[in-house]
Design a protein around this nucleic acid. Structure first.
Length: 423
RNA sequence: GGAAAGAUGGCCGAGUGGUCGAAGGCGCACGCCUGGAAAGUGUGUAUACGCCAAAAGCGUAUCAUGGGUUCGAAUCCCAUUCUUUCCGCCA
């Protein structure tokens, strides 16, 4: 959530920036500031009231010690009055705080000023395109047929065991998964990331910390008996490691990488988007997370962008990088790059990674802070990105590398798969 | 699943109704000491919100969470959550 101090000091700037995300925040911002004034007035009254009560209590204590029972009892009547008032004021204060908090939570993060203007995915700015799109001739299959042909991923069997969107990987299909996970983890470790193996279920507090709760709970699988949620991404447990922490400035940048299975209900999805590996309820992903000093977060974003690009180059996949426009950015992001690989058989671009700088938006909600050079605590910046999500990478690898002999495995992966071709 | 114990600051740990935001220790920071270090020694060391132009300062809240008793609660009462240990089960 946005910092209240920024809203107080520069409401116009906030309104202007949010307009880039096509949001008219004028009314909400005014509302927040009005509530803020009332909230502070109420707190002042309550604090004064409590201060008086505390003083009287102290005085009564002294009087009792001196044996002046009568004087002490005389003071008690005033405290009853104060107590009634305090109760009322603290109820009011709580209500105002809740009101302000709800309003603040309803505002998305401010996009960076350099964010492209636009309404939808059409308006995203393509900032790089790399690699060669293979010419498959006229005999080629989409991945959902290739997986059947080579018997490496069984969607039907997954339906039998669980339901749609829970495929079963078999033989070289399973080994390819394992190879990709190991490859992605090892690359990250080489780049200085600390590997984390997080729980796949989290409690409610963690869900709130990264913003899945209370709004997006429909997107998560819920273990009602124990009030746990299956994680939709490793970002949730990994980022929550730093919830309510004040880290040391020398620790920056904090770099974590985590492989996890991810579980998403994907309520409301349908059609060609969900065919085969394009959208699953359970999938594998390696996620990179960085926590950085505010002055350096944008340099870090570029570093992460370059890191993901390098992975795709090693996999020899044609890809492009998009700078998302205001209308297509997520609620929490200030700047997002999307990576898309070209799927030659489906003849379309598939999103495989999203690398974002959240600035202090997540950190504010989670109270993730650090002590700066002057000893003042301030919010850290958080960034994350997929590096990478497996299913669409697999789809593109299968489709783009299909040959008459079989599916060729890119050289960089062979050390991990132990085979060069799926046939 | 059954039984018991427990939850206090970055960590350990004292504290059973007032002078407790909380002894003591560790850690950390800065200084002294030292040729340099260790040891020793001195000082400091929570967070949030509010008041104030700001700093200083002041006020309020926080001893798992929520409620209650009381003029006054870390301390007493109730509920909840979590943790540990033992038994059972188990990869």
């Amino acid at each position: 959530m946005l910092e209240i101090t920024i809203l107080r000091e520069n409401p116009e700037m906030v309104i202007e920036r949010l307009a880039i995300k096509n949001i008219d925040a004028r009314a909400t911002v005014k509302n927040i500031l009005d509530v803020d004034v009332k909230r502070r007035e109420t707190q002042k009254m309550l604090d004064d009231n409590l201060a008086e009560s505390n003083n009287i209590a102290r005085e009564i204590g002294n009087l009792f010690k001196q044996g002046k029972q009568a004087d002490a009892n005389a003071l008690k009547s005033r405290t009853a009055e104060l107590k009634a008032m305090a109760k009322e004021l603290s109820d009011q204060l709580e209500q105002l705080q809740n009101e302000q908090n709800e309003l603040l939570i309803s505002l998305p993060n401010m996009p960076n000023v350099n964010t492209p203007k636009g309404k939808s995915a059409e308006d995203n700015k393509i900032i790089a395109t790399e690699g060669n799109i293979p010419d498959l001739g006229d005999k080629f299959l989409p991945h959902w047929e290739l997986t059947q042909k080579y018997d490496i991923i069984d969607f039907e069997l997954g339906v039998k065991l669980t339901g749609a969107g829970f495929p079963v990987y078999k033989g070289k299909g399973a080994r390819l998964q394992r190879a990709l996970i190991n490859f992605f983890l090892q690359e990250a470790i080489n780049a200085g990331y600390l590997e984390i193996q997080p729980p796949l279920m989290v409690n409610e507090a963690s869900g709130y910390g990264t913003g899945q709760l209370p709004d997006k709970e429909g997107q998560m699988y819920h273990v009602t008996e124990d009030k746990f949620y299956l994680i939709p991404t490793a970002e949730v447990p990994v980022t929550n490691i730093y919830r309510d922490l004040i880290v040391k400035q020398e620790d920056f940048p904090i770099k974590n990488v985590a492989y996890s299975q991810c579980f998403r209900r994907e309520a409301g999805s349908y059609g060609k988007d969900v065919r085969g590996l394009n959208r699953l309820h359970q999938f594998d992903k390696v996620e990179i997370v960085q926590i950085q000093h505010p002055d350096k977060s944008y340099a870090t974003l570029e570093e992460m962008r370059e890191y993901v690009a390098a992975l795709l180059r090693k996999l020899e996949l044609p890809f492009r990088v998009l700078h998302l426009c205001g209308g297509d950015m997520s609620f929490t992001s200030a700047w997002t790059y999307d990576f898309e690989v070209y799927s030659a058989a489906q003849k379309r671009w598939l999103e495989v990674s999203s690398v974002s700088n959240f600035e202090s938006f997540q950190a504010n909600r989670m109270k993730l802070r650090f002590k700066d050079a002057n000893g003042k605590t301030q919010l850290a910046h958080t960034l994350n990105g997929s590096a990478l999500a497996l299913p669409r990478i697999v789809a593109a690898l299968l489709e783009n590398n299909q040959t008459a002999e079989g599916i060729k495995i890119p050289k960089a992966l062979v050390a991990y798969t132990g085979f060069e071709i799926i046939d």
